[in-house]
């Protein structure tokens, strides 16, 4: 069976697979991870703020997002967003949100829920005395968080944040439901066009494995280096 594999199909499609597919995948991963981290950190701070209404709202958001399948959120957001936008701005017709913007916002909102939990654990891992010391030096709440607590929380949680980003990298393949072409989508298109499903999917699996495995190794090395700090 292996003798019938035609790897020239893979070779011929490399520029398309990486130049378009992989670039899309990496762009979406990077943007959604950064946005998710910022938003997630905000959610974690709100959840730990102890302000009754806000704390519960943040908790509800996180629990809700984590309870829903990602595909459902992608669909839901894509079809509902134009109407929500129209309602919010008072426009007569649904606001047009392109599939990429829709996917990016969805992934950011979804990842924020996971990053929020990681950052919450990270903030709680910083001893209380650290924020007491910062406040005793006259720092405001914002300065205490920005200069003392969050840098330590981020460091402590870096391995988990990267692991979550690896999961995100794989999950971005779900954008096929919005007819966007990521790396897997590109491979899939070539596979259908040339009737070379086995070769293309085999190759795609190999690439995902290589990227994720390399990233995991990096995480493990980081873990070993960061563990020295305290």
């Amino acid at each position: 069976m292996l003798a019938s594999l035609d790897l020239s199909v893979v070779a011929a499609s490399l520029p398309y697979l990486f130049g378009e597919g992989m670039v899309f995948t990496l762009t979406l991963t990077a943007l959604a991870a950064s946005g998710g981290l910022v938003l997630g950190t905000g959610l974690a701070l709100v959840r730990l703020s102890g302000v009754p209404g806000l704390t519960h709202a943040a908790k509800l958001y996180v629990e809700l997002m984590r309870a829903l399948p990602l595909v459902l959120v992608i669909f839901w957001f894509y079809f509902l967003m134009p109407y929500l936008g129209a309602w919010a701005t008072g426009a007569a017709s649904p606001i047009q949100v392109g599939p990429f913007a829709s996917a990016l916002i969805t992934f950011t909102l979804f990842e924020a829920a996971y990053f929020a939990e990681i950052m919450r654990a990270g903030i709680q891992s910083v001893p209380k005395g650290q924020s007491a010391a910062a406040r005793a030096l006259g720092m405001s709440y914002a300065q205490t968080m920005r200069l003392v607590v969050l840098p330590q929380a981020f460091r402590n949680m870096l391995p988990l944040l990267l692991t979550q980003t690896i999961v995100l990298f794989q999950d971005t393949s779900l954008v096929y439901v919005l007819s966007l072409t990521d790396f897997l989508g590109a491979a899939s298109k070539v596979a259908q066009r040339d009737g070379r499903l086995v070769e293309m999917y085999l190759f795609a699996a190999l690439v995902y494995f290589a990227v994720c495995f390399a990233a995991s190794l990096l995480v493990r090395r980081l873990q070993a280096r960061i563990a020295v700090v305290r």
Binding site: P127, G138, V148, R155
Partner: peptide, 16 residues
């Protein structure tokens, strides 16, 4: 607080 110095039992230097 900026005018009141405080020294803690567990030092609380910023490790990063």
């Amino acid at each position: 607080r900026a005018r009141v110095g405080m020294v803690f039992q567990h030092f609380e230097l910023f490790p990063h």
